[in-house]
Design a protein around this nucleic acid. Structure first.
Length: 425
RNA sequence: GGAGAGGUGGCAGAGUGGUCGAAUGCGCCGGAUUCGAAAUCCGGUUUACGGUUAUGCCGUAACGUGGGUUCGAAUCCCACCCUCUCCGCCA
């Protein structure tokens, strides 16, 4: 959510900046509803004030044993008028909130303008794509060996966009998760967490999935009210500070979690249908950082580096992209994507996304820290990044480490997690 | 799922219809005392929103959440959520 004060005072500037990311803000609608809010709220508060002072006078009169009937007649009509006003005020504020919750974050000044992914800017590359002296297979083909990767089984059990992993490949998948978690918790200073995969609507609203993107989520109706399967561990990790005021000395709060992620992939029909690139259920090691506002830009660089180290230790060539205004997610002010080299596609594909959400999520969540300089609670900044997607890392390892016979070499970094084996065959 | 107890400020904990945003204690901040400290004493110490002649002032709201009764609700009524104890079930 954007700062309502900013929205009020500099509506035109806000609209202009939102336009760069392809969002058309209805300025007239905001102005109309805002002036109505102001009128109704002021009037309501005056009525409340009147009622309060009169009621207090009645109490005082009665305490002294005086007759209060004249005073009581005076307040008689206020209740009904107040009820009408309060109802109207609730309506207007609801409209305003609905509008505010649907507005994306403002892009950071350092973000290049662009309409879509073609406007993204490459920052740097690491590693050299391997030269193969045989015809490379893609991960689907490699996965047919020993039934390692079985899309048909996934379809039978659950439907499209589910897969079953078996044997050495299933173990390699597990090894990747353990490796990443150990790296971030052990060397990068993130606190290892294990979090719920099902969360309530408040949590989804806090990180920005609701109310706008409900169709992307799986939900459950078991128990009281609707709850949602998390699309990323960013949701539970970030919401840990929802409605909290944390002390300055706990910042930055760096947290990591390995989790399952569930995405309906609505609107992605026909994209990446082959193999396990785009699944309804996948795993990811997530990085979340809660920081002081002044530190969030540095923290963003650091977090992205932590994700890059994963790929470097795995020996996977990648490049870092700075996303342009038109390609960023709803909550992000600035995003780096890491793209890993996939030999079968002869291109780089997204494997990590690291975003600085500034105060956009924290305002929704009322997540604050106590600033020692002012002594007051102020909004924190929230950041999240994949460190990295495990399914896609598995694909990248399969394709980049494949041998001519279809066996797959195990990257050095993963061997301790594979009982020392050097390849899966 | 059943029975019981309970949810009040950073924490503990009073308050069963009126001057209660809320006693008291602890903690924290400032000051006095002291060579310094402890002890003691004095003062201060929630948040959100709105208005404003803005490092201030005024108003409104908030005692788990949402409704209701009332001129007036932390207090009475209803529903729900959560926590704890015991039982059941379960990994």
């Amino acid at each position: 959510m954007l700062d309502p004060a900013l929205l009020r005072a500099h509506l035109d500037v806000v609209a202009e900046r939102l336009a760069t990311r392809g969002y058309a803000l209805d300025v007239a609608a905001v102005e109309a509803i805002e002036s109505e809010r102001k009128r109704v709220q002021t009037q309501t508060q005056e009525l409340q004030n009147l009622r309060n002072t009169r009621s207090k006078a009645i109490g005082q009169a009665k305490a002294k044993g005086e007759d209060a009937s004249a005073l009581m007649a005076e307040v008689a009509g206020i209740g009904d008028q107040l009820k009408v006003n309060e109802q109207r005020l609730a309506e207007v504020q609801e409209q305003l909130a609905a509008l505010a919750l649907g507005i994306p974050n403002l892009p950071d000044a350092s973000v290049p303008q662009g309409a879509d992914e073609h406007g993204n800017v490459e920052q740097h590359r690491w590693g050299t794509p391997r030269a193969f002296d045989f015809e490379v297979k893609d991960h689907v083909e490699l996965g047919t060996r020993h039934g390692w990767l079985d899309g048909d089984a996934g379809a039978k059990l659950s439907g499209a966009r589910f897969t079953v992993l078996r044997g050495g490949l299933a173990r390699l998948h597990r090894a990747l998760a353990q490796f990443m978690l150990d790296l971030h918790a052990g060397e990068h200073g993130y606190l290892e967490c294990n979090v719920p995969l099902i969360v309530n609507p408040d949590s989804m609203r806090g990180t920005g999935q609701l109310p706008k993107f409900e169709e992307d989520l799986f939900s459950t109706a078991v128990g009281e009210g609707k709850r949602y399967l998390i699309p990323t561990a960013e949701v539970p990790l970030t919401n840990l500070v929802r409605d909290e005021i944390v002390e300055a000395d706990v910042l930055p709060m760096r947290m990591t979690a390995h989790s399952l992620c569930f995405r309906a992939e609505a609107g992605s029909h026909g994209r990446d249908t082959r193999g396990m690139i785009r699944q309804h259920q996948f795993e990811k090691v997530e990085l979340v950082s809660i920081s002081r506002p002044a530190d969030s830009a540095d923290e963003h660089e650091r977090m992205t580096r932590c994700a890059e180290v994963v790929l470097e230790k795995l020996g996977l060539p990648y490049r870092r992209m700075l996303l342009c205004t038109g390609d960023m997610g709803f909550s992000a002010a600035k995003t780096y994507d890491l793209e890993v080299w996939l030999p079968s596609q002869n291109t780089y594909r997204e494997i990590s996304s690291c975003s600085n959400c500034t105060d956009f999520q924290s305002r929704r969540m009322q997540a604050r820290w106590r600033n020692p300089e002012t002594g007051k609670p102020e909004l924190v900044h929230t950041l999240n990044g994949s460190g990295v997607a495990i399914g896609r890392a598995l694909i990248a390892v399969m394709e980049n480490y494949q041998n001519a016979d279809g066996s797959i070499a195990v990257p050095e970094a993963l061997r301790p997690y594979m009982g020392g084996v050097a390849q899966i065959a």
